[in-house]
């Protein structure tokens, strides 16, 4: 009850600049959260804090480096050492691309399980949306279109078999390749 009364008072009297909102943002995503933390430190000129924020995702970076992008950890360290914002941004985007590749390749292994494949592709789209602002328009739209094709290629079991569409592994692989090509440019 006290909490509700507090909330009512807050709703009336708390003022301030409303922050932006993004439906894709909820749910903990270490890479995306770390990107904000790193940039917050970089913007303040505190590169030690940036390294500290990057250390929070060392496990993710090690995993992605081992399986998806062999030079990733090294590039990340060099970027932080360079203290150059653009280089750091490029390294973070490289990590995000590796994360997208990870989800899409896991999707390829799960094409027989529609639900899992769909969640993986949609999840990769969340990472893409988070970095889409860093991409030139044509590149962004090409990757977006290829992601849509990947989603189409996982098929659809339909409802009680109505509208059923089988997965198309070849189309899926081609779409994934196109996504990664568009992001690599």
């Amino acid at each position: 009850m006290v909490r509700v009364l507090y909330a009512i008072l807050m709703s009336l009297f708390v003022a301030g600049q409303a922050h932006a909102y993004s439906y894709a943002a909820a749910g903990k995503e270490p890479l995306i959260d770390a990107r904000e933390a790193i940039f917050k430190a970089v913007n303040a000129g505190d590169f030690e804090a940036a390294k500290q924020a990057a250390s929070e995702i060392s496990e993710e970076l090690t995993y992605l480096t081992a399986d998806y992008d062999h030079g990733l950890s090294g590039a990340f360290e060099k970027a932080l050492a360079s203290q150059d914002t653009a280089t750091i941004a490029a390294a973070i985007n490289r990590a995000l691309v590796a994360e997208i590749a990870r989800r899409l390749q896991a999707g390829a292994e799960n094409l027989k399980d529609y639900q899992t494949a769909k969640v993986l592709v949609v999840k990769s789209k969340r990472f893409f949306d988070a970095m889409a602002g860093d991409l030139p328009g044509e590149q962004r739209q090409a990757a977006d279109e290829s992601l849509r094709k990947a989603l189409e290629a996982i098929g659809n079991p339909g409802v009680f078999g109505v509208g059923k569409r089988d997965a198309d592994p070849a189309a899926y692989s081609a779409a994934v390749e196109d996504v990664l090509k568009a992001l690599a440019n």
Partner: peptide, 13 residues
């Protein structure tokens, strides 16, 4: 290129 203000620190950088 369209940057999402939700990621304010990224935008700032």
């Amino acid at each position: 290129r369209i940057l999402d203000m939700y990621y304010a620190d990224n935008v700032e950088a």
